[in-house]
């Protein structure tokens, strides 16, 4: 259903393109919250959890990071302590060893102990199950001449019928992640195609005009990472994309609201565990 909503929004947005003007609005402040971002996947690499603090809405400084916190992850059998990165660019990042990998169907419990209280709390927890994901059969790139001319990256895969599945699609071009920041990531649930073959659904577009999007060159290797996420993470990403979209249309948007979280004690953000499957193709003209 959320997809149908998107389609309508695009259509009506075209008709009702009103005029805009910049205005001054004063906003109140609010108390600081702990912000957590963490990802555990079934890939073998250093996975990270990032700790920052929230700031006032108009603030232009980067978020203050939290160092010297005790961050551990328990997978149901053992607990690993994450080590803070030494890199000055990556303050606030806590990493697992590089040979760490998440196991499908395990539940991961994150525990955080921060040195100074935020909002009266020092201990925070979150947990996420790591769901499996179907393999990608293949991906294909097709060019269309409408509008400015664009390429569709199409996905072919089977969606398992027995489970409720939620997906993210990340796209890399020659090892550069294009779907960044996270509100560029395509997300979907399987309500429209549960149990069906996903027959070339478009998950990303390249545009034949660099002003409007990413351009595609012959010889580029395009890799798609399909993530099998939990329903909670899907809801988080959906709400996140709603709240960070640039234009809210009163015809279709409900009132703004806080994004859900799976972190305890009044912290915000999300700790997500998910599995990833890949497919690549090289673009030939």
């Amino acid at each position: 259903m959320k997809k149908t909503g998107l389609i309508i929004i695009i259509a009506i947005g075209i008709i009702l393109n009103g005029c805009t003007e910049r205005i001054e609005i004063e906003l109140d402040s609010t108390y600081t919250r702990l912000v957590v971002e963490g990802h555990i996947t079934n890939e073998t690499k250093a996975h990270w959890v990032r700790l920052t603090k929230s700031v006032d809405y108009y603030s232009t400084t980067p978020a203050p990071t939290i160092s010297n916190a005790l961050v551990t992850i328990n997978d149901g059998f053992k607990t690993d302590t994450l080590v803070e990165s030494n890199n000055s660019d990556s303050a606030g990042y806590y990493l697992t060893p590089t040979n760490y990998f998440g196991k499908i169907d395990s539940t991961y419990l994150l525990k955080i102990d921060i040195p100074e209280e935020i909002n009266g709390e020092k201990q925070y927890t979150a947990s996420s199950k790591l769901n499996p994901v179907a393999p990608i059969d293949s991906i294909r790139i097709e060019y269309f001449e409408d509008w400015y001319g664009y390429w569709e990256v199409q996905l072919f895969a089977w969606d398992p019928a027995e489970t409720e599945n939620y997906y993210t699609f990340n796209v890399y071009r020659n090892d550069t992640l294009l779907t960044y920041p996270v509100n560029e990531v395509s997300i979907t649930d399987d309500s429209y195609f549960n149990g069906n073959y996903i027959n070339g659904a478009a998950i990303y577009y390249f545009v034949n005009d660099e002003e409007y999007g990413e351009y595609l060159y012959p010889g580029d290797t395009i890799t798609v990472h399909m993530g099998g996420i939990t329903e909670e993470y899907y809801n988080f990403l959906y709400e996140f994309q709603e709240e960070t979209s640039e234009f809210r249309n009163p015809l279709f948007s409900g009132p703004p609201a806080n994004i859900s979280t799976n972190i305890s004690n009044g912290a915000i953000g999300f700790f997500a565990a998910y599995s990833v499957s890949y497919a690549s193709t090289v673009y030939q003209e």
Binding site: T52, S54, P255, N258, I268
Partner: peptide, 27 residues
Amino acid sequence: VTFPSGRAEHGGTNFPIFTERNAYRMK
């Protein structure tokens, strides 16, 4: 209307934090 009071970083961008519904007004 509902306007934000705070912001937080996540996934390479920022998201808003709201405290109260409909506490502000448009012009």
